[in-house]
């Protein structure tokens, strides 16, 4: 299964690999947290089970309480609405909370506070809310309907929020650093299947991936695959297979989902004229629809085929392996659709 391969696709990442700086995606997240907490005493983490020696369900915050004390690694009761609300109040007072959702799926329990309060405060009365919510999202790891979700579309649809979804260890660090420094509420969707299955070069010390900038991770002239998160790796796997048949794909990693890097999207669209948009989130009313619409509006004359999309099905995310595999995009499905697109 593609999600279990180790470093595939990232050996040719834009930064030159250096043996001592190959770290996992999840270690890169922890590193960004630790470094920002060292740099700025207003930065702290809060969430369920994040504190003490435990370090959260995925151990992202392990060791932080030892270094920074319990006051900056705050264990919260099981109350997402309450503690995202409290994080919003702390952020309004000028602190920079990094709020951990135990799983992205539970962010719906804090939805109200996020979309009604945090997202609107600056527009209505200049109340800046510089928090980050870290949301361990994504499936393919047999976790069932409530530990596999990719709910980014809800938040992309909400004015006042920013949304990011790193695909590589370097961007996991760089985007989290940028998100913490941003003065707006940012939802950071980290991909669970990437946590320990991908290693890559991550610059030591300060490393910022600016928000709003996509990254062309593979260059080809026959078609474009626009994607983000764990599907970047799937797209690169597919692109390698396509290359063996002489089909060369652009692979654009969006990195930031809101605000979108429209320039980069239109550039690859105009370059290849054949576009597919892929995401693990369900396809209906997902980000892919918005991207297809923008390409139709602004790059129509360059198109050589209808823009096509590949996303999750319009079902809850099923648990059993054959069902989840049927639900979820992967490298083979991308490759198959790309062959149709190339032949169009």
């Amino acid at each position: 299964m593609a999600t279990e391969s180790l470093t595939y696709g990232f050996a040719d990442a834009p930064e030159a690999p250096s043996a001592d700086r190959q770290i996992t995606y999840i270690a890169a997240i922890s590193e960004a947290l630790r470094e920002e907490m060292r740099r700025n005493e207003n930065v702290f983490v809060m969430g369920e089970d994040v504190g003490g020696g435990f370090g959260g369900a995925f151990k992202v915050t392990k060791g932080l309480a030892d270094e920074f004390g319990d006051g900056r690694v705050m264990n919260m009761p099981l109350a997402e609405g309450g503690f995202v609300g409290a994080g919003t109040g702390m952020a309004l007072m000028g602190l920079r909370p990094v709020i951990e959702m135990q799983f992205a799926d539970f962010i719906s329990s804090a939805f109200d506070i996020i979309v009604q309060f945090a997202a609107t405060a600056h527009y209505r009365w200049d109340g800046a809310v510089p928090w980050v919510i870290r949301a361990p999202s994504d499936g393919g790891i047999r976790s069932g309907p409530f530990h596999s979700q990719n709910p980014e579309a809800w938040f992309i649809h909400t004015p006042g929020l920013k949304v990011v979804a790193p695909a590589t260890p370097a961007d996991a660090k760089g985007l989290l650093t940028a998100a913490i420094r941003d003065n707006n509420p940012v939802i950071y969707f980290e991909s669970k299947p990437l946590y320990r299955s991908v290693k890559g070069y991550v610059p030591a010390g300060e490393h910022v991936t600016p928000l709003g900038q996509a990254n062309l991770v593979r260059s080809g002239s026959d078609l474009s695959i626009i994607t983000y998160g764990s599907q970047v790796r799937e797209a690169l796997t597919a692109a390698a297979a396509l290359a063996q048949s002489g089909i060369e794909a652009d692979v654009l990693d969006l990195r930031t989902l809101k605000p979108l890097d429209e320039e980069a999207i239109l550039e690859t669209a105009r370059k290849t004229g054949k576009i597919m948009v892929v995401h693990a989130a369900n396809q209906l009313a997902g980000l892919g629809g918005e991207i297809a619409a923008r390409i139709a509006e602004k790059a129509f004359e360059w198109l050589d085929a209808p823009v096509c999309r590949l996303g999750g099905l319009d079902t809850p995310i099923p648990f059993s392996p054959p069902l989840e595999d049927a639900y979820r995009p992967n490298a083979l499905k991308i490759e198959a659709l790309a062959r149709e697109l190339a032949a169009y």
């Binding site: 609300g85 409290a86 109040g89 309004l92 007072m93 109200d112 309060f117 209505r124 009365w125 109340g127």
Partner: peptide, 29 residues
Amino acid sequence: GMGDLERNIIGFVSHLPHSLPVAVGAAMS
């Protein structure tokens, strides 16, 4: 929407009681 941080006022949204957890957070800060 009548928030004004210079006067230490947090503005409210319609949804009730959403100022409550936010004020708890201000206290925690």
